[in-house]
Simulated scan of single mutants.
Amino acid sequence: MRTAEFDREQVLEAAMEVFCQKGYVKTTMQDLKEATGLHPGSIYCAFKNKRGMLLAALNQFIQSRWRQSQLCLDSEEPLDGIQYYLHQLAEKLCMHHPHCLLSRTVADFSSVDNDIRDALEQPWRELLERLETLLVKAKEQGSLKPSINPQNAAWLLLISVFGLRGFPQFMADEKSLHACIDLQINLMRCE
C-alpha cells in the first residue's frame, strides 16, 4: 500500500480550524476533506479515523501554540509576565481568533474518552504548575501580597485563562477585557 504524501503540519492546522469552528461532533469527514484537501482514504490511512485526527491536532496544538504562548510568561518580574500573557490572550480573542482547540474540545467531550481527556488535561496542569512557580517567585521577590497563597492564586489565574479562551467573541470588548486583566494582577501586587 502506498503511503500518503502531504504536509502533516499544514493538514493538522486545517483540521484544527474545522474542529474549533464546528466542534468534534458536528465535524464531518466531508468537512475534513474540504479543509485539508485529503481524500477520506488518506485521512484514514494517516490518522485511522476522525478521533485520531483530533488527537493528532491536539498534540500539534499543544506542541506549537500552547507552548509558544507560554513564552509570554518569561519575565524578570513574574507578575508582569503573567499580565502580558493574559493580555496576549485577550488580543487574540479580540482579533477574531476566538477559538481554542483545547477549550472547544473540553466543551465537546466529558470524561468519556480517556485519551482525549489526558491530552486536554496535560497542558492545563503544566500551565497551573508554571503559574504557581511564578507566583512563588513573585512572593519571594516581594511583589506578591503576603496574604496571597500562590497555589490558590494560580488556580484563579488558570480559571481566568480558561475563561478568556472560551469567552464568546460577540461579547469581546477589548478595552474591558484588558482593564479586567490589569485589575486582577494589580489586586495581587504589593503596593
Rank of each mutant, 00 (worst) to 15 (best):
L164H: 00
A35G: 09
L131G: 13
N149D: 15
D7P: 10
G37W: 07
R189E: 06
A56N: 06
S147A: 12
I82F: 04
A57D: 01
L32Q: 07
I43Q: 05
C180Y: 06
S64G: 05
L120H: 13
D115T: 11
G142C: 06
I62D: 11
V11G: 02
L102I: 15
L54P: 08
T36Q: 10
M53L: 05
L32K: 06
I62N: 11
A15I: 01
L156M: 07
E76C: 05
D118S: 14
K137A: 13
V112A: 15
R104T: 15
M53H: 01
G142Q: 01
M29W: 11
D80K: 09
Q184D: 01
S143K: 00
V18N: 02
L131T: 13
M171T: 04
G142K: 00
L102E: 12
L101D: 07
R2V: 08
Q30C: 01
L86V: 07
V18C: 06
Q30D: 10
L101C: 13
D118L: 14
L156R: 03
L177Y: 05
P150H: 09
F109A: 10
C94K: 02
D173N: 03
C94G: 12
K175M: 04
E77R: 10
E132V: 11
L183T: 07
S110H: 15
A35R: 00
Q21E: 13
K145L: 06
I62L: 03
E129I: 14
I181V: 09
K48Y: 08
C20D: 12
A4F: 10
G41V: 14
S160E: 08
D80P: 11
A138H: 07
L156T: 09
L12Y: 09
Q68I: 02
N49G: 07
A172S: 04
P150R: 01
R189A: 07
E91T: 02
A4I: 01
W155P: 04
D7K: 09
F6D: 12
Q169A: 09
E174I: 01
M53T: 00
L38D: 05
E17P: 04
L120T: 15
S110E: 13
A179V: 01
E34H: 08
S64T: 08
D113I: 13
L73V: 08
Y84S: 04
S147H: 04
D74K: 13
A90S: 08
Y84M: 04
H87R: 06
T3P: 14
A153I: 01
M1I: 11
T105L: 11
N49F: 03
L134F: 13
Q83G: 03
I159Q: 05
S176F: 01
D115N: 13
M171R: 03
Q63V: 04
P146Q: 08
L120N: 14
A107Q: 15
G163F: 00
D113A: 08
C100R: 04
A179L: 06
F6R: 12
K145Y: 06
A138G: 10
N49T: 10
T105Y: 11
F19H: 14
D113G: 14
L89Y: 03
P150I: 00
L187P: 02
L101M: 13
H87M: 02
R51D: 08
L177P: 07
A14S: 10
F162L: 05
